[in-house]
Nucleic acid binder design. Structure first.
Lengths: 229, 229
DNA sequence: GCAAAAGTGTTCACACTACACCCATGC
DNA sequence: GCATGGGTGTAGTGTGAACACTTTTGC
């Protein structure tokens, strides 16, 4: 009966990571200069091949770690790409994952070795294969998901100000938000803990710092109160 | 440089279809009795292996057609499953797709040959491998997507009544809806064309039949008016 | 004292909710 | 004539949108 399996073709399987960060009030994408043929020298997502003993999630995390040094990062599968002609060398499926990281934490040294560079998502160069489409779909997924889950905070430092959150959501949604209404909405969230410290890096007056409290968030969620922005 | 590819392992790739229909005011799932080892005789999603020259979408449509005879069906990829141990015979990745079909149109003869049977989604048996999880994720995706895109109509016949649409959304969301408020919402949609015919199969008075007009829907969409329910 | 960003308050309109009643028809 | 499902109307309410002013502080 195993014939039923072994008469079927096998395929290479790759993982590609859409690595997103938030800096200078912009969403940024981490790209590398591809180091091997085909398309050597072109910009590309960080990717890697699936190994024999790995799950897809494990492989994606391995790929992310190899470029950024980061573990324990928010990461989610988006979509699997598999048209026969997408990789000209050998037929390869690619499972795309997006990762949300804090730009201040990643390993700049390793990234430099890969020729990695941050690009504003408003200014993404032509990428190899179908990588541009992968980025597009990942950004759409982020837009959707960020409205109902507090994943945006994965892109901010531990402590952040309300204007910072607003700039982040403005970057994700590509639209300006009224700062008074936004502030009201955010302050109504019981899982945001206001600190007594101000951050003066962006203004003379200074803005209060906040922390996301996952404990309270989980408790509220259990009570059926959901995140919504 | 092709070494970089060929030193990496290859994998079997399968497609599994979550085939959903709407009948007797319930969401239904089409399952087959698995005809080969392992787990022969157990209930299973309809699946198949990816062929050498096919895209994932093409393969999924081939699998769907082989069971139901249907083409031109709404179908979307949901998620790719790839833990090493998910298929005990040979490591196999599976790309899941869900399909929304009209239960009156599918080929009952072919389906019968596969030992296929419709199950209420409230009463799904234990399935092989990780198929129960696939169904769960597909239903969550349907719930999300049906709120912002008019994909629900894919499950209804060409002509349908407003009470029918309501029953459908009640089945998708697993909650009752106020029929007066629902009716108002639906009637505000310019892409629903009211016919002068009544359907009396469910009541003595009869309910007016409606049709979904894709032309008007596309035009409205272009104007930035989106589906929302 | 002024520019620049942060913080707070009010009004208004619309959309969603929760309801109750009449209508048509087969039996 | 009555039970059953289909259709419509209305009042209240709460959320989101639009908008203006004061505060703090570095220069």
């Amino acid at each position: 009966m195993q014939d039923l399996y072994f008469k079927h073709p096998k395929f290479h399987v790759a993982l590609d990571c859409i690595i997103l960060g938030f800096d200078e009030n912009e969403l940024k994408l981490l790209l590398i200069k591809r180091g091997f043929e085909p398309e050597i020298g072109k910009w590309s997502l960080m990717g890697g091949f699936l190994g024999d003993q790995e799950s897809l999630d494990q492989a994606a995390r391995r790929v992310l770690k190899s470029l950024t040094g980061l573990t324990n990062v928010f990461m989610e599968q988006t979509y699997t790409y598999g048209t026969p002609e997408r990789d000209p060398v050998s037929r390869t499926l690619s499972v795309a994952y997006y990762a949300l990281i804090r730009t201040d934490l990643y390993d700049q040294q390793v990234a430099a070795n890969y020729g990695a560079k941050w690009f504003s998502i408003n200014d993404i160069p032509a990428l190899i294969f179908d990588h541009n489409q992968m980025v597009k779909q990942a950004l759409e997924m982020l837009q959707l998901k960020s409205k109902t889950k507090p994943i945006g905070f994965e892109l901010l430092p531990e402590r952040f100000t309300i204007p910072q959150i607003r700039k982040l959501y403005e970057a994700i949604d590509r639209q300006e938000l009224d700062h008074r209404n936004f502030s009201k909405k955010v302050k109504a969230m019981p899982w945001l803990k206001k600190l007594d410290i101000k951050d003066k890096s962006n203004s003379k007056k200074g803005a209060y710092l906040y922390e996301f409290d996952p404990i309270i968030y989980k408790r509220q969620q259990a009570d059926g109160i959901n995140f919504s922005i």
